[in-house]
């Protein structure tokens, strides 16, 4: 990576920081609107997902990573989804 590329990266890091701070304020502000719970959950998780994606993409450099790392993460996401949804499905099978 050249010095100019790093300087460009630094500008992006500062922009991401500003976005994360703004989204934190948005998350807290929305919580004071006392939305019905399903909407509150959806909005809070949406904002958290956007913030998490910014951290992962830019700070953890996932936006330009090697294939092997994407492979590890793809497996992780599959197992994470199974971990989250299989217990829910088996516990609340009758309710669905």
């Amino acid at each position: 990576m050249t010095q100019d590329e790093i300087k460009k990266h630094v500008r992006i890091y500062i922009a991401v920081f500003a976005a994360l701070a703004a989204l934190t304020v948005v998350t807290v502000a929305i919580s004071y609107l006392h939305l019905p719970l399903p909407y509150a959950i959806a909005v809070a998780l949406l904002v958290a997902t956007i913030k998490g994606s910014l951290v992962a993409s830019y700070f953890m450099h996932l936006i330009s990573e090697r294939a092997v790392i994407y492979g590890v993460l793809a497996f992780t996401l599959i197992f994470f989804a199974a971990l989250l949804f299989i217990p829910m499905y088996t516990t609340f099978e009758g309710s669905f």
Partner: peptide
């Protein structure tokens, strides 16, 4: 360190706001 930050980004709304 960024992973620890990422976990907190989800913990904060889930535990404190919802």
């Amino acid at each position: 360190w960024h992973f620890v930050d990422l976990v907190w980004i989800f913990l904060f709304p889930v535990l404190y706001l919802l």
